[in-house]
Simulated assay, not measured.
Amino acid sequence: MTANDALALHRRAVVADAHNDLLCSVATRPSDEWSDYFRTQWLPQLQEGGVDLQVLPVFIDDVYRPEGALRRTMRMIEAAHRLAEGNADAVGLCLDGDDIDRVIGEGRIALVLALEGMPGIADDVELLETVHRLGIRIGAVAHFGRSAFADGSGEDAAGSRLTRTGIRALAEMERVGMIFDISHLGTGGVDHVLEIATRPVMATHSSARALFDHHRNLTDAQIAGVAESGGVVCVNFFAPYLHESAYTIDTLIDHFERVVSVAGIAHVGMGPDFVREVIADTTAPCCVQTTIEGVPADRYLPGLEGPTGLPLVTEALLRRGWPEADILAVLGGNLQRFLRSELAATAGA
């Protein structure tokens, strides 16, 4: 199998990325630049990488918390709507599974909005319905630290589960039709969600803790729990979460194979978490970010620093001997199917 064969397979696939923080980059610009900036800076990267389906998280940096968190949340949601409207020839903001299938079928990139951490919601659980009306379809209730809903993975030593507010939030998300994302949730919280969730959950960007014991990764039992719920685990590409020092694409494929061995091929996708450009774009020169929760912030898989490198994943999977059908499933078929099912089931909720 040659590189050209791999690229042909990649172009034939539906390629879905469950986590790209590009909205952070877009929203730092003046509002009248949002659409053009996306077109010139991000759209070419997504197209070169073959991306057909892109989940866009709304992440609120610490500088905006707590007072400005809701305002920043609204600004980022508005930025997503405007960049979609201004680039309607190339992308479409999707609210349900039918939207996703239609936009992809038209040769455009389907965009799905997510919340990451929800500091703008705090304990006002009723605002989950508000942001759902604005287009949010996936939500994570914590990041690294403590929130009104639960502890993030950086607080694993506390051993905590969801708070009472977190339990209410899960129920409200299930009611309105928002998919619960366990990535970044502390291990006790993940276990709690898997115990009480009544709908499928997902991990938008988490890898295998059995291969590298980092709090951002999931245990085999948690991976199996997501699969048993009917959800998907989307593997994170951020090198310091994959290995102590072997920052190679083979290490990434090891994580894919571990997650598949536990969850089954139908429950695995991609959540690259491409942060190099976003960090550079949103950090002032005086304040260069060198670590993220104690791991290096400047270490990336060669060639996979951004979306343009995604065909390398297809090539690497072929080298490992993966069947084409399995590659197509993991590249995006599984995530498209999952979102089609879950969002269609809750349309108009």
Rank of each mutant, 00 (worst) to 15 (best):
A221I: 09
Q222N: 12
Q222Y: 02
Q222K: 07
Q222I: 06
I223V: 15
I223H: 07
I223Q: 05
A224N: 00
A224T: 01
G225W: 04
G225N: 02
V226C: 06
V226T: 09
A227N: 04
A227R: 00
E228W: 01
S229L: 10
G230E: 11
G230P: 14
V232G: 03
C234H: 04
V235D: 11
N236L: 10
F238P: 11
F238E: 07
A239Q: 06
A239R: 09
A239C: 10
P240A: 14
P240F: 13
P240E: 14
Y241R: 08
L242C: 14
L242P: 13
L242S: 13
H243N: 15
H243A: 14
E244S: 13
E244C: 01
A246H: 13
Y247A: 11
T248I: 13
I249T: 05
I249A: 11
I249F: 06
T251K: 04
T251L: 09
I253M: 13
H255P: 07
F256V: 09
E257T: 03
E257R: 11
E257G: 01
R258E: 15
S261G: 12
S261L: 05
S261Q: 02
V262L: 00
V262H: 01
V262Y: 03
V262G: 00
G264Y: 04
G264H: 03
I265P: 07
I265K: 09
H267V: 11
H267S: 13
H267G: 10
V268P: 12
M270K: 03
M270W: 06
P272Y: 06
D273Y: 11
F274V: 14
F274Q: 09
V275N: 09
R276A: 15
E277R: 15
E277Q: 14
V278S: 11
I279L: 15
I279Q: 01
A280N: 14
A280L: 13
A280H: 13
D281F: 04
D281S: 15
T282Y: 05
T283K: 04
P285A: 06
C286S: 15
C287K: 00
T290E: 09
T290V: 01
T290W: 00
T291W: 00
I292A: 06
E293Y: 05
G294I: 01
G294T: 04
V295N: 01
V295T: 06
P296R: 00
D298Y: 11
R299A: 15
R299N: 02
Y300Q: 00
Y300E: 03
Y300K: 02
Y300P: 07
P302Q: 04
P302W: 05
P302I: 09
P302K: 10
G303D: 09
E305Y: 02
P307N: 03
G309I: 07
L310F: 05
P311H: 05
V313Y: 01
T314P: 05
T314F: 06
E315K: 10
E315H: 13
L317M: 15
L318W: 03
L318S: 01
R319N: 08
G321W: 07
W322T: 04
W322Q: 04
P323R: 10
P323T: 01
P323S: 12
E324W: 00
A325Y: 00
A325D: 14
A325L: 05
D326L: 00
D326G: 02
D326H: 13
I327V: 11
A329E: 01
A329G: 05
